[in-house]
Design a binder for these strands. Structure first.
Length: 733
DNA sequence: GACCTGCTGCGGCATG
């Protein structure tokens, strides 16, 4: 290495750290990022694989500059999407800066007040924070902002893909602009991500509100992949003659999972919390039967952070095997070390998710990334068995093909008129001002980058509506202040987050928190959580706590979900795979025979199966299959309980034009079937299209209906049509 | 029978 090499330009304590860690050289991404940071004044987007050293690539050169010219306030602000990720990064950075005399602070809901007070007293070094805590700072402590961030040099946004495309991302952009104005600083931005489809879109997102160019650092990855798909065809659960065959099929499915994981550091991804729970229950049952050790963990959004950290530590550290079944909680960048097996039960719903999950395997450089798909066709009341299409298998293949062969990942779209967020930031800005003239407020809010498409006239309409609905109030001398309703909404701590949530009860076994539930069973009833069974002993409604003890037997899990979003392109790919008849190469030999048998039976029985396909466009597609039961449930809800609109959000199609496939599942006939519409289904879908709830965000409900219409139209949705349809039916009221 | 994220201020009490 010549003396010009970026390594020798890094601060001495960083060179020390690199030696101490036993690294022989900087990774390519770190070399490139160092050049960008040290030689330009531009923003930077680092897009490279998981565990490629992105965090170090951002911090090595940024800290070097900070070391050369110490900052008189916080010098680097790191924004992360998860508390767990911040805690993980906090430990890694602390190791790096042990000898550097640059402090690392973290700030989120679990950080004690005493620590936050320390940062306020000695604003310096690196501060790691969540968007919600940053909102709290901007809103409630505006006078502390100049001292905290007056000399801020860098803002690092981790896992950019987790923010962009959602209101939470626009919230971050808005906060960055507010922070710069309040503190009088103009920091450079560094975005980190492993999963990105369209770099140009992300670059312009990252620069939002500034005129500084964004440099892309994205070294070619080229990892080798090893993918395998195992498909289990389950016999019909309702056919009594088949009950023994079904038992055997389930047994071989579970034994397959057990045999391929229990001696390794293994991660089993599932698509639902329920499957994660039931799988680990099964694994524990098999372990007990075989008198082998219990090495199993469950990791999802309703598991307490303590149990999650236990699972993470077991995978990362220690000798011997550890197996965790997880939902997307283990997709993001928390360090898990190098895993020996990554399994996926069923197929992922998106290519982005597939790539993230793939990134969990083969983390050492040069290693092969491996993913073992295990599909089992689920029971379907509507289907006439034994001939069924392997929909899950098809989706697994479609996702693999799209990513591996076409390098395609779902593009992220940003709302053109984020109305709910406009309300949110208006209230937040007004609270930080204390009071403001209407014009002053408009200048402060409407110039924030996410709101560039709103007109002054539209903002006036919003403010007038908010005055009329008591969210705002006008003082005698014409100043705007937060009104009674506004106080109720923005005065509560839940205001900091811009996404919807449900109230949860914590579940305790003695003093140990196991996790949380939203549906609380009465005392005496059982449920499963964290891969074990529990019996409710006592419910403390006031403190939102449920006390439980261990139980035996068999019970359902508590989570009820209904459908989700899947990109049109994945559905089209599934259709193409069927049409091209290219399914066979992906199937294990016996599975191909099973499928052949299924197809023959399909022809003989004239089986009907349904598939809902969007007619065109690249907008989001909703459910791969919708049963009449779901429609009945929807109808009932629509008629009786419109207040439940928001909870229906995920069941409702997001694009107004659909066509229906109804009929045989034979591939040759599919072309014909796509144009043969079923009237009943069409009616039901029409009804869903007329339903306006799916587009409402947490704060949209506080904004004027006329503006909501304009905002939807901007994103290509015709609310007027939807409204008319509603009035014309029984569901209008 | 899809998934996930986040969170304040203060009263009451014990302790040094």
């Amino acid at each position: 290495m010549s003396a010009e090499h970026p390594f020798y330009r890094l601060a001495p304590f960083i060179q020390e750290y690199i030696y101490r860690s036993g690294w022989e050289e900087l990774r390519e991404v770190q070399v490139e990022a160092s050049r960008v940071v040290l030689d330009t004044n531009h923003h930077m987007l680092i897009a490279s694989g998981t565990a490629s050293g992105k965090t170090e690539a951002a911090f090595f050169p940024a800290l070097t500059l900070l070391d050369q010219e110490p900052s008189s306030s916080v010098g680097i602000l790191y924004i992360g999407p998860l508390k767990a990720l911040i805690n993980d990064q906090f430990q890694r950075l602390e190791g790096l800066m042990r000898d550097a005399h640059i402090p690392v602070w973290h700030w989120h809901g679990d950080v004690p007040q005493s620590e936050k007070t320390k940062v306020m007293r000695h604003p310096s070094g690196v501060l790691q924070i969540t968007p919600e805590s940053l909102e709290g700072l901007l809103m409630n402590r505006p006078n502390a902002i100049p001292a905290l961030f007056g000399d801020l040099r860098f803002i690092v946004i981790d896992e950019v893909h987790a923010f962009m495309g959602a209101d939470r991302g626009s919230q971050v952009l808005s906060q960055l602009e507010r922070l710069s104005r309040m503190a009088g600083c103009s920091p450079r931005r560094i975005g980190l991500s492993a999963t990105l489809g369209d770099y140009e879109a992300v670059k312009s997102w990252l620069a939002g509100g500034t005129r500084i160019p964004v440099e892309l650092v994205s070294p070619p990855g080229g990892r080798k992949l090893r993918l395998s798909i195992e498909n289990f065809a389950m016999p019909d659960a309702r056919d009594e003659r088949q009950s023994e065959a079904l038992e055997n099929a389930k047994k071989s499915y579970n034994n397959f999972i057990y045999d391929h994981t229990h001696l390794k550091k293994a991660l089993i991804f599932t698509n639902s919390r329920t499957v994660a729970e039931t799988t680990i229950l099964e694994m524990r049952r098999i372990a007990a039967l075989r008198q082998q050790p219990d090495v199993f963990h469950v990791h999802h959004g309703s598991i307490s952070s303590m149990l999650r950290e236990e699972a993470e530590a077991a995978l990362r550290e220690g000798y011997g095997p550890a197996v965790a079944a997880a939902t997307l909680t283990l997709e993001l960048g928390i360090d898990l070390g190098s895993l020996e097996r990554v399994m996926q039960l069923g197929a992922p719903y998106s290519c982005a998710s597939f790539v993230q999950r793939l990134g969990r395997s083969g983390r050492r450089e040069g290693a092969v990334a491996e993913m073992m798909f295990v599909c089992a066709e689920e029971d379907d009341e509507e289907a006439q068995l034994p001939a069924r299409m392997p929909w899950t298998l098809l989706r697994a293949i479609a996702v693999c093909e799209l990513y591996v062969k076409e390098k395609w990942i779902e593009p992220q779209t940003v709302r053109k008129l984020p109305l709910g967020l406009l309300y949110h930031q208006t209230m937040s800005v007004l609270r930080s001002f204390g009071e403001a003239e209407a014009g002053e407020l408009a200048r402060a809010v409407l110039t924030l980058p996410p709101f560039a498409n709103f007109t002054t006239e539209q903002y006036r309409e919003l403010l007038e509506y908010l005055l009329a609905t008591d969210h705002l109030e006008q003082t005698e001398d014409g100043m705007l202040i937060v009104g009674l309703m506004g106080e109720r909404v923005s005065g509560h701590y839940r205001f900091y987050a811009v996404f919807q949530d449900e109230e949860e009860h914590s579940v305790y076994d003695g003093s140990e928190e196991i996790g949380s539930i939203t549906t609380v069973p009465p005392a005496g009833y059982c449920f499963s959580l964290a891969g074990r069974l529990w019996k409710v002993e006592e419910v403390d409604s006031r403190h939102k706590a449920v006390y439980v003890k261990h139980a035996k037997g068999k019970v359902d899990t508590l989570w009820l979900g209904a459908g989700g979003d899947m990109h049109t392109r994945i559905v089209r790919k599934m259709r193409d795979i069927l049409r091209e008849n290219t399914l066979y190469p992906y199937l294990a030999p016996n599975a191909a025979a099973r499928l052949e048998r299924a197809r023959r039976l399909s022809r003989e029985t004239g089986l009907t199966e349904r598939l809902v396909l969007p007619a065109g466009g690249d907008s989001m597609f909703v459910m791969p299959w919708i049963g009449s039961r779901e429609f009945r449930t929807l109808e009932r809800l629509l008629k009786n309980n419109l207040s439940q609109q928001l909870s229906l959000r995920s069941i409702v199609p997001m694009e107004p034009h659909y066509m229906v496939v109804a009929g045989r599942t034979d591939a040759d006939e599919l072309q014909h079937l796509i144009v043969s519409e079923s009237e009943r289904m069409e009616d039901s879908i029409q009804m869903l299209d007329e339903f306006e709830a799916p587009y409402l965000g947490k704060y949209d409900e506080f904004t004027p209906p006329g503006l909501i219409r304009a905002a939807f139209a901007a994103d290509g949705l015709d609310l007027e049509g939807l409204r008319r349809g509603l009035r014309g039916s029984d569901y209008g009221a």
